[in-house]
Amino acid sequence: MPVRRGHVAPQNTFLDTIIRKFEGQSRKFIIANARVENCAVIYCNDGFCELCGYSRAEVMQRPCTCDFLHGPRTQRRAAAQIAQALLGAEERKVEIAFYRKDGSCFLCLVDVVPVKNEDGAVIMFILNFEVVMEKDMVGSPAHDTNHRGPPTSWLAPGRAKTFRLKLPALLALTARESSVRSGGAGGAGAPGAVVVDVDLTPAAPSSESLALDEVTAMDNHVAGLGPAEERRALVGPGSPPRSAPGQLPSPRAHSLNPDASGSSCSLARTRSRESCASVRRASSADDIEAMRAGVLPPPPRHASTGAMHPLRSGLLNSTSDSDLVRYRTISKIPQITLNFVDLKGDPFLASPTSDREIIAPKIKERTHNVTEKVTQVLSLGADVLPEYKLQAPRIHRWTILHYSPFKAVWDWLILLLVIYTAVFTPYSAAFLLKETEEGPPATECGYACQPLAVVDLIVDIMFIVDILINFRTTYVNANEEVVSHPGRIAVHYFKGWFLIDMVAAIPFDLLI
């Protein structure tokens, strides 16, 4: 008679799926529990143990900040960024110097990925580790590398530091407007667009060049630039800015003055950032001319202004700041037409079709709590990747769950009947059967004279019903998954307890 339990259901295979997918890609990662103190490590794979030199037993239950890997060259700011990422709910990448158990130093890129439950609360953290440099290539500990984003994938490793954006290309926007319009339909740009040429040739750093990471940081200074100062900065030398009595002219307006920039070969870094931020506020060169004239017309309804409409929906549905990093990277690809469009465009503009998908598509409701890094690593669709929660398995109709209350009560009843059979069957065979043979035949009273025979008949009927119930009862397979398919249940029961239950259900007393 089957006594099969499996009270692990309803099970959740999400954690096993993450481990299996990460292991298949030869990654070095740990999984931490966000619900406990210090976000203790609950799993670390073999790749991480080989990377740091510690065994799994030495890593388990330690804080996922990996303070046991810190050393003299470990930056405090990087460690603080990892700790801050564990307090938030967004994906974050941090470069930090770690030390192995043998004392060797290596520069590592740590990717902190939160995993949320159905309520939107962070319950786990996945920390992925990628070695960037070994100890002989690690720089000085005073050099802070965590304020910069990861290198873009479309640049060669040897040319990542030679990417320079020439400031004269930004200063000569109005001069290039006529050349853009003359391109017409034969050019790649839309009317009114501004073409910015980027020099990728390796050259020595000069005062006129600005690194790509500095251009990325310009967006942080746009908020500090007032509207009046932006307007004066875009007017140009024809209309000098008016300053109040006793007030000095704005240095932001002076930063885009061609006369002032041409007199000296070098520009201050602050002026460069502010000038680029001011130019980015204009949607095209037409807006710059309109600002000089004193009238700013409404933005025209053409394809170039609607190019950012799908980007707005993608940004609203993005799951991490990696989408913004990807957008900034692609927006700086050289030799393309940049349409400086305000994100607050007309909502009635139709979304044009684009061959290049900048932001990841909208994630469906079932995966809105899973970050983009987890979705990318697992390579699963929205119909396959579940949320991290207890999910009731989908069972067929008329199927009994093996952990249901009805099955528990039924098993206790069958257990009592088995005990009765084990006690009274030998007793009936030894004593009652002998008395029946010696006594007179009682054929007239039937079952009324033999109450134990009636009980034995009921017990046999219950055993037959138990066999039928076992054909529709779920079970737990070797992978700790609840199986509810009727065919698989029948095959599993035939290979197991079916023969024993059938022999126990045969009414031998009635056959004798």
Rank of each mutant, 00 (worst) to 15 (best):
T371Y: 08
R176Y: 03
P157Q: 06
S318K: 09
E372R: 10
D213H: 15
E118Y: 06
M218P: 15
G306C: 12
A277L: 07
P205K: 04
P249K: 07
C276T: 11
S243T: 13
V132G: 15
I358S: 09
P251Y: 13
A97S: 11
L200G: 15
D136E: 06
G47A: 11
R271I: 15
P299Y: 05
P251K: 13
R271C: 13
K101F: 01
R62G: 14
P298C: 13
R56L: 01
S313T: 14
L378G: 01
T319L: 05
T65Q: 07
M218H: 10
R271P: 14
P310I: 09
Q61D: 09
T174E: 14
P334K: 07
E95G: 03
V3T: 11
I30T: 01
A78Q: 05
V222Y: 15
A32G: 09
P237N: 05
A360I: 10
P361S: 14
R20A: 11
G149R: 09
V115L: 13
S263M: 04
V112Y: 01
F68V: 01
P141R: 11
E274S: 14
T201L: 06
N12Y: 15
V113N: 08
M308V: 12
A293V: 08
D102W: 01
L296W: 14
V279C: 12
I123W: 11
L315G: 12
C44Q: 01
A193G: 05
G262K: 08
K93S: 13
C276Y: 03
Y99I: 01
F106T: 01
I333M: 15
A79N: 01
T337F: 09
P202V: 01
S266I: 07
S207F: 06
L69H: 01
P310K: 14
Y43W: 05
S351G: 08
G192K: 11
Q376P: 03
I82W: 01
P347R: 11
V132Q: 15
V374F: 11
E90I: 08
L296T: 04
F125N: 12
L107R: 14
H147T: 09
P2L: 06
A142V: 14
D111T: 14
K166Q: 06
D67A: 08
H309G: 14
E23R: 01
G314Q: 07
P352A: 12
T13C: 13
T174D: 06
E214M: 05
G226W: 05
R252I: 03
E130T: 15
L69C: 01
E91D: 12
L127M: 11
V180C: 11
N45R: 01
S264R: 12
R77M: 14
A360V: 15
C39H: 14
H368K: 10
E208T: 10
L225M: 12
T13M: 14
P334E: 15
R73V: 09
M60H: 01
F68W: 10
A40P: 15
A160F: 15
T145C: 05
S178C: 06
E90M: 09
G294W: 04
A282Q: 15
V112L: 09
A97W: 14
R159T: 11
C44K: 01
Q61T: 09
S206H: 15
C49L: 14
N128D: 14
F106H: 01
A32S: 06
S266P: 05
S153L: 06
L171H: 09
R252Y: 04
R56Q: 04
S250L: 01
N128Q: 15
R328V: 05
M133V: 13
T353R: 14
R292P: 11
G187Y: 06
S304G: 08
S250V: 15
M218L: 06
T337N: 14
R100F: 01
G158D: 05
R281L: 07
D323S: 08
P157M: 11
V180H: 15
T17D: 08
P251F: 03
C105K: 05
P241S: 10
C276S: 07
R148M: 11
V94N: 01
K373A: 12
L87R: 14
L324S: 12
K332Q: 12
I123R: 11
P10K: 09
Q61S: 12
P249N: 10
T174L: 06
L225S: 01
K93D: 09
V195L: 05
Y99V: 01
F129E: 01
D144W: 06
K21Q: 12
L378I: 10
P237W: 04
S179R: 11
L200E: 10
H70I: 05
R301M: 07
L316C: 05
I18A: 05
S140F: 13
V215I: 13
S304K: 12
R269C: 14
R27K: 11
A40S: 14
G47T: 06
T353N: 14
G186C: 05
I96C: 06
E289G: 04
V295T: 14
E289A: 11
A282N: 14
A190G: 09
G226I: 15
G47C: 01
Y54A: 01
P168V: 01
T371G: 07
R76D: 15
L380M: 07
Y43H: 02
G24A: 08
L171M: 15
V374N: 04
